[in-house]
């Protein structure tokens, strides 16, 4: 039976998290020979479905459109997935906030144990996943009839585009009346998205205020065309919004370049960035643990170093 990949999208645009989860799905298909169908569920999501239909390796796109699916509320989306489940061996998605919300609900209703946050496909039923903030990696084999999996997107490259496959409209969910969407406070930014950026500049508690965070970190990020991240301490203190948090309980990223500014390097922060290709640490404490994972360490006061860094980059 085929694999069902739940697409991550923002209504009209498809997130590249989907193409990364597709790579994991293709690896599973490499063992099982299964076809891959992508489910796009939303209220006004045809453009996202069209983008999904262009991804190489996908054989069919299912498009479920209903007002009840507009905000990816867990209850109607789970109803839809549970209804589709009997036709699939594997249901998987990138481990986004939305998928982490809905997939365990689906797994429980199917009486299966979800395999969360896989970083490697070992075989059709065996996967590697991090535990203890990534301080250990477990290889687990599932014995369940249906596999429900979330994929750590940072560990997989995005699948390429290919030809285009058919889009099949299917019945959407219906509102369950259990939950209602009230409002969103979503950041709109011209900057690259944290989860998929090639470069990231992250600030920590050392930034001291929302103003300094803005005045010191953002110009450097602009020079580098980088996304902006933050430590939990910086987010808790209100210097940066919650969706910038990198770490065990925030976003897991693996850009080509990660620059940690005034971040000590607690294990919970490292959990979110230590697979970056090149890590730079700027910290005034030569003993800061962040230097143990940094390819380039610069000991110094960030308020002196960053303007020089910015100037040197521009020259």
């Amino acid at each position: 039976m085929p694999i069902l990949l739940l697409a991550e999208h923002a209504g009209r645009s498809l997130s590249d998290q989907t193409a990364k989860a597709l790579t994991a799905a293709l690896k599973i298909a490499g063992f099982s020979g299964a076809e891959i169908h992508v489910l796009v569920a939303g209220a006004d999501a045809r453009p996202a479905a069209e983008a999904a239909a262009r991804l190489a390796g996908v054989t069919k796109v299912l498009l479920a459109q209903d007002a009840a699916l507009a905000h990816q509320l867990a209850e109607p989306l789970a109803d839809l997935l549970v209804a589709l489940a009997p036709a699939y061996d594997v249901i998987l998605a990138s481990a986004t906030a939305s998928a982490r919300n809905v997939l365990p609900r689906v797994a429980a209703r199917l009486d299966v144990m979800q395999v969360s946050d896989i970083v490697e496909v070992v075989s059709a039923d065996t996967f590697k996943r991090p535990i203890y903030a990534g301080n250990a990696i477990q290889t687990v084999q599932s014995s369940d009839a249906t596999l429900v999996i979330t994929v750590r997107a940072a560990s997989f490259a995005a699948a390429a585009e290919g030809g285009t496959v058919p889009i099949e409209a299917i019945a959407g969910g219906t509102s369950t009346g259990l939950s209602r969407f009230l409002s969103d406070a979503l950041a709109v930014s011209e900057r690259p998205e944290l989860a998929s950026a090639r470069r990231i500049v992250s600030g920590g508690r050392a930034l001291g205020s929302v103003e300094t965070f803005r005045d010191v970190i953002l110009p450097l990020a602009d020079t580098l065309d980088a996304a902006v991240g933050a430590s939990r301490a910086a987010v808790d203190a209100g210097y940066a919004p919650n969706d910038w948090q990198v770490g065990q309980t925030g976003k897991v990223v693996a850009p080509e370049l990660y620059i940690a500014v005034g971040i000590s390097g607690a294990i919970q922060h490292l959990a979110g960035m230590k697979d970056s290709k090149v890590i730079v640490a700027i910290n005034k404490d030569p003993e800061a643990p962040i230097f143990q994972v940094a390819d380039y360490g610069l000991v110094g006061d960030l308020f002196e170093v960053l303007p020089e860094f910015d100037r040197a980059l521009r020259s």
């Binding site: 939305s98 950041a187 919650n242 969706d243």
Partner: peptide, 13 residues
């Protein structure tokens, strides 16, 4: 709720 792009507010029964 803390979601990927920021915050979402919902009402549950």
């Amino acid at each position: 709720r803390e979601v990927d792009g920021g915050l979402q507010t919902i009402e549950v029964t």
